[in-house]
């Protein structure tokens, strides 16, 4: 099946594209897509502990199992979190 991957902000800069299409086996999770992406773009590995994800523009968990045609987005930490003080 085919999924569309969306990346943003600094992640997109590292990957060099805002969107990627990938053919993946049935039952693939968002986490698995991310792990494959890290393998392809090792510089994004620093985000492994801090990214969140969305599937078809709804907040989702990394364990979410994807369907054919899904759009999975990886979201680096948002800029808003102002430092206290």
């Amino acid at each position: 099946m085919r999924v569309n991957i969306r990346v943003f902000a600094r992640l997109r800069d590292i990957v060099g594209a805002a969107e990627l299409d990938r053919d993946v086996p049935t039952g693939t999770t968002a986490q698995r897509i991310w792990d494959d992406l890290v393998e392809e773009f090792p510089d994004i590995s620093t985000y492994s502990g801090s990214i969140s994800t969305a599937v078809n523009a709804e907040y989702a968990k990394m364990e979410t199992v994807l369907d054919d045609g899904d759009e999975v987005a990886f979201l680096p930490p948002v800029s808003g979190g102002e430092l206290p003080g």
Binding site: A9, R10, P76, P77, V78, S79, G80, L83
Partner: peptide, 20 residues
């Protein structure tokens, strides 16, 4: 909100990242 901010200075730029 999934909104990111990139700051540009005279001599460079940086993505501002907080906490998810």
């Amino acid at each position: 909100a999934p909104i990111w901010k990139r700051e540009f200075f005279k001599d460079g730029d940086v993505w501002i990242e907080g906490a998810t």
